[in-house]
Design a protein around this nucleic acid. Sequence first.
DNA 1: CGGAATCCATGGAGATACTG
DNA 2: CAGTATCTCCATGGATTCCG
Lengths: 130, 130
Amino acid sequence: MSLPRAKLTKNFPGCPVEATLSYLDGKWKGVILFHLMDGTLRFNELRRKLPAVTQRMLTKQLRELEGSGLVSRTVYPVVPPRVEYALTPLGDTLKPVIRALAAWGEEYVFCRPEGHELRDPSCAPAALQA
Amino acid sequence: MSLPRAKLTKNFPGCPVEATLSYLDGKWKGVILFHLMDGTLRFNELRRKLPAVTQRMLTKQLRELEGSGLVSRTVYPVVPPRVEYALTPLGDTLKPVIRALAAWGEEYVFCRPEGHELRDPSCAPAALQA
DNA sequence: CGGAATCCATGGAGATACTG
DNA sequence: CAGTATCTCCATGGATTCCG
């Protein structure tokens, strides 16, 4: 995707970090993208991988990711319904970013100090939840 | 910081991506960290760099970053008060992540499709705000 | 200068129930 | 299977005022 390069810096009126975070905003976008990095997933497959998320929220987050152009939604007109979610080409470009987020999380989540709470407790290994 | 490595994967009960995002959660953490990557800043210096953020929110976000162990707050007992914010060693480890977020934002923010809104309009160059 | 305190509007997000 | 539809509640965040 060789598109015109934006010239955003923190001195420019606009912050590229916040721009990217705006795509990951919301409670479950990160995990969803993380899982979709491995390939296409159906709605309930995704649900099973995110035990703590409600159906409503999963739908909502997926719709937002679709609206952002990061995720594609393919409906197969069969019974029972079959809907598949996958990363779009734009979504693919986020992979290095997701990997960077994952790498830091793996490395430093155990450093979590008293003051810091995880957004979703189920997002921490059992050893940390006590 | 060679600490015990967590073994979080998306198969493990806990997602390293969400863990990292939990540190960046909130409306202004990303930009704040981005600016602090260049060095120590005083409260009002930070304010000037983030025209759209209210005083209350800046304080709040800084307190949370402090609580998370990413940012240090140093008060100099002088009049007028002087308070300096800087990245902690843990905060420094986030630099590659912030850089990844910034790189993607610079590259793809112009791809922003109809469906996607930036969290803060002032976070986009004027050309995009129309 | 660098906040704290208060009030208030919005909507993000949970729980539950229903459907093509 | 893959969603809507409501109802509700609470946290987020804006605006404003006051303070050492």
